[in-house]
């Protein structure tokens, strides 16, 4: 049985009389010790999925349907108190923007001790000792537990946030853009550390990112999101070597590759769809170079792909030559 099974997760945001269809029938599974990359451009619903799994959506967010099974129990069916006990203890999230993720009026150590004591019947001294120990494990001096967030650098705060997540020894960590806003050296350190901890604790990781290179480096599976839906899913190798959705292809060709011939980076023209009134057909059709009449009229169902174990794509033409030709063309576009 997979650790996490998300089925048809649908999230709306109320916006006056309108509803933003931020996540639409999102399904995926994740095994222990595995890493799933959730990738897509801003506003595609990646972060919304993370918030929904923890049920910490903003007050205008509504989970309109679906199931989330963590280790067998349905998180969406739990009452508020039971859900509160799941948070941090079994499912923890590292939010985007570590700069503002820590309460500015509390010493970082006090905050972590409070969280620890909320979940476990430990004495103050014991809590203090475990927090200090966790600080050392993420590479922060013990003395930093006495610091206020504004006394720490961005990198130190990121480590403190990470220490907060690891302290609970959860089964699953959701990391939302953990590397964004840091320089490449720090980005690399952050990713390496995440992977070390993951290996040591055997935990599962959902990495939310818009950065294809981060995903390539760290993930086992990749789910590409567009307009609130997962449009392509597969292993890292399948997605990067044989992308079968025009949007994935466009994402891949907008990032430089370290290996292979130098090629021109292609920007994707157009803007993401208006999710208050999602298109009837394929959400990507208005920006898609391959779109035909059928794409605007009929939403594509996921098509599994022969020869690949887990690979599927939500494109009418996923099995046809014109998609693979587009992928080859994008990969080989000479500069």
């Amino acid at each position: 049985m997979p650790l996490l099974e998300v089925r048809d997760l649908t999230v709306h945001y109320r916006l006056g009389p309108a509803r933003v269809h931020a996540a639409d029938r999102v399904s995926f599974t994740l095994d222990r010790g595995q890493t799933l990359g959730l990738v897509g451009e801003s506003g595609c619903g990646k972060t919304t999925v993370g918030y929904a799994l923890l049920r910490v959506l903003p007050e205008n967010g509504v989970i309109a349907g679906g199931q989330v099974h963590l280790d067998g129990s349905d998180l969406l069916a739990l009452d508020a108190e039971a859900m509160r006990r799941v948070r941090w203890r079994r499912l923890s999230m590292i939010f985007q923007g570590a700069m503002n993720a820590l309460n500015p009026v509390l010493r970082v150590g006090d905050l972590l001790e409070e969280i620890l004591q909320t979940h476990e019947p430990v004495s103050r001294e014991e809590a203090r000792a475990r927090v200090a120990e966790q600080f050392e494990q993420v590479g922060l001096p013990r003395a930093r537990t006495h610091s206020y967030p504004h006394e720490m650098s961005g990198g130190q705060r990121q480590r403190a946030v990470k220490a907060k997540s690891h302290l609970g020894r959860p089964d699953l960590i959701i990391a939302d853009e953990p590397t964004t806003a840091f320089d490449v050296i720090l980005q690399d350190q952050i990713l390496v550390q995440l992977q070390e901890i993951q290996k040591r604790l055997g935990l599962a990781l959902i990495l939310i990112s818009h950065d294809m290179s981060v995903i390539a480096e760290t993930c086992d599976h990749v789910a590409v999101m567009y307009g609130g839906r997962i449009v392509e899913y597969g292993t890292v190798d399948e997605i990067f070597a044989r992308p079968r959705h025009p949007y994935t292809i466009a994402m891949l060709s907008s990032f430089p590759s370290l290996y292979g011939p130098a090629r021109e980076l292609l920007a994707l023209p157009g803007v993401p769809p208006d999710l208050t009134a999602p298109p009837v057909g394929c959400a990507f059709a208005p920006r898609c170079p391959l779109a035909e009449e059928r794409c605007h009229a009929e939403a594509p169902a996921p098509l599994t792909l022969d020869g690949d174990e887990t690979h599927w794509s939500r494109c009418h033409f996923a099995r046809e030559v014109k998609v693979s030709a587009l992928a080859r063309e994008a990969a080989g576009a000479e500069s």
Binding site: V56, R87, E114, T118, K164
Partner: peptide
């Protein structure tokens, strides 16, 4: 609406304490 409020809520701090201890002091 601050990030640090979402952080403590996502860390399983009871809603009453999120409001009284973390939000009000700020």
């Amino acid at each position: 609406h601050e990030d640090y409020i979402t952080t403590v809520r996502a860390a399983g701090i009871p809603e009453r304490l999120v409001f009284l201890r973390h939000a009000l002091r700020n």
